[in-house]
Design a protein around this nucleic acid. Sequence first.
DNA 1: ACAAAACTCTATTGAAATACTAGGATAAAG
DNA 2: CTTTATCCTAGTATTTCAATAGAGTTTTGT
Lengths: 143, 143
Amino acid sequence: MKISTKGTYGLRAMIDLAIFSQFHPVSIKKIAARQEISELYLEQIFAKLKQGGLVKSKRGIYGGYFLGKDPQHINVKEILNILEDNLSVHSCQNDNMKICQRASRCPTRVLWKRIDRAVHDIMESYTLEDLVVEAKFQDNSLL
Amino acid sequence: MKISTKGTYGLRAMIDLAIFSQFHPVSIKKIAARQEISELYLEQIFAKLKQGGLVKSKRGIYGGYFLGKDPQHINVKEILNILEDNLSVHSCQNDNMKICQRASRCPTRVLWKRIDRAVHDIMESYTLEDLVVEAKFQDNSLL
DNA sequence: ACAAAACTCTATTGAAATACTAGGATAAAG
DNA sequence: CTTTATCCTAGTATTTCAATAGAGTTTTGT
């Protein structure tokens, strides 16, 4: 894949939540302002994240979103899997698409599979907590 | 990145060349027929490959294309680098684009860099010869 | 010489994916 | 019963990608 804005914004939003939603829900308006993302667009992203169980929400005044699990139990792969249509580097590796007619005698399939595996492993090894640590390290204003 | 048809077709074409152009040039018409690719589109792909030095050409009747280097000295990264605009998984890692304003305090940059490095290493380790071996293994009709 | 085969080059079209906008409905707190 | 927020469904605008079109130029075999 090429990581889209959904994945990019979603990751940033999750990091924001991990930092700011520990004691009370955080509204989309707040996150959008801090992360410089369109509010309306962020709504759609959070709808997916909620559907995937990564965040929970509280409606009404003083409502907002918060993490569905602890940051150390959420990895990057889970987040991007929900927000990106297909995490493979090649569209032929997509299960729900029409299978490539040449698949049985395609010399490059092995290559794509190996790359996907490597990407997959790295994404799975990075937790949201790792990213929070990185964020705090880079920007003391978040502490 | 998501590998586009340019990269996909280009790789297939290079494998085709490695197998069929050992003794005489191979025309685009032949490759397009064998690989089921539009001739006009293949032309554009070969223009890039030639510009990148991976193939050479002979004009006129009985002309066509042949490899610029031995298959064991051409790796997949070289090929895709020429045909794909940007091999990074994230557009923020693109040198010639406008630099992301948040780069200096972006917690996810490290992640993209690490993924890109892994992908890069795998692509570089695969030579055209490796793919030819794989192709011949899968389809005896090419032998 | 000359015609055919094949490469070279630039522009345009068409289709699909992506990014974002719009507007209303529902819910909770005070 | 008003304010603030999530929730939900469409719709549009932009960009990227894939492919086509067509007019050249070069080379070579005969």
